[in-house]
């Protein structure tokens, strides 16, 4: 089955063989014209190479989005099935890596939508409060400072990670798309299937809620 590529001797086959793939798309031959041509021609070794090289960072993406390993792996399978079906029509005006990233996000969103996990649930108790005159209520919290030691860096990361996962999916995913995966408001709104204004509101709520959730750590760590 893996011999389907026949005598194709493109550069992508030889120059990177044996080199361990890293998560950076730059470490793969993903944008090499010969490699893309091989993929489009249905070369099976090229496809397997794509799965092995790009699959690492795409699986990490699916894990971030889905929060559990089994579903993340299902999403990666969905994504590569989409890739297989649509690679012939791939127009390289963007990067192949970016295209794959988008396909994987969409595969994850599809599963989240099907599982009704993208709804906007109320999180009012995590949002700031104002009085009738528009004045902010509540006492100021301990000042959030940068972690100073490696121990603190790890502690902050662990805590923040935990709290991101406590956000309802409808907010968490918007936060991921905008602040982590680097999509614009317009792109993220399109992917989520909501208006740009609605996306901005959700992002604001997600960030504000995360702030509320992580602040107690600085009460413990102190504000130096």
């Amino acid at each position: 089955m893996l011999e389907g590529g026949g005598g194709l001797e493109a550069g992508w086959e030889t120059d990177r063989m044996g080199a361990p793939a890293k998560t950076s798309p730059a470490a793969t031959p993903a944008d090499d014209a010969a490699f893309i041509a091989a993929l489009k021609a249905g070369d099976e070794r090229a496809f397997e190479r794509l799965v092995r090289d790009q699959g690492i960072r795409l699986l990490a993406l699916a894990r971030r989005m889905m929060r559990d390993e089994a579903t993340a792996q299902d999403c990666l399978q969905d994504a590569f099935l989409s890739v297989h079906r649509s690679i012939a029509g791939f127009e390289p005006h963007g990067s192949l890596g970016g295209w794959l990233h988008r396909i994987t996000v969409n595969a994850c969103l599809m599963r989240l939508r099907t599982a009704k996990r993208l709804a906007e649930t109320p999180i009012d108790d995590l949002l700031p409060d104002f009085n009738g005159n528009g004045l902010r209520l509540g006492e100021p919290r301990t000042e959030i400072r940068d972690p100073e030691t490696e121990l603190e860096v790890n502690r902050v990361r662990r805590f923040v990670r935990e709290k991101i996962d406590e956000l309802p999916d409808g907010y968490r995913i918007v936060l991921l798309l905008r602040d982590i995966e680097g999509y614009s408001t317009r792109e993220a709104a399109e992917m989520m299937g909501i208006a740009e204004g609605a996306l901005k509101v959700r992002l604001h709520r997600a960030r504000a809620a995360l702030k509320t959730l992580v602040e107690p750590l600085w009460d413990e760590m102190g504000s130096s």
């Binding site: 890293k22 894990r63 971030r64 991921l176």
Partner: peptide, 11 residues
């Protein structure tokens, strides 16, 4: 936090 996690992801 999430980019550090990605850097540590499996290879």
């Amino acid at each position: 936090t999430l980019s550090a996690e990605e850097a540590e992801a499996l290879d």
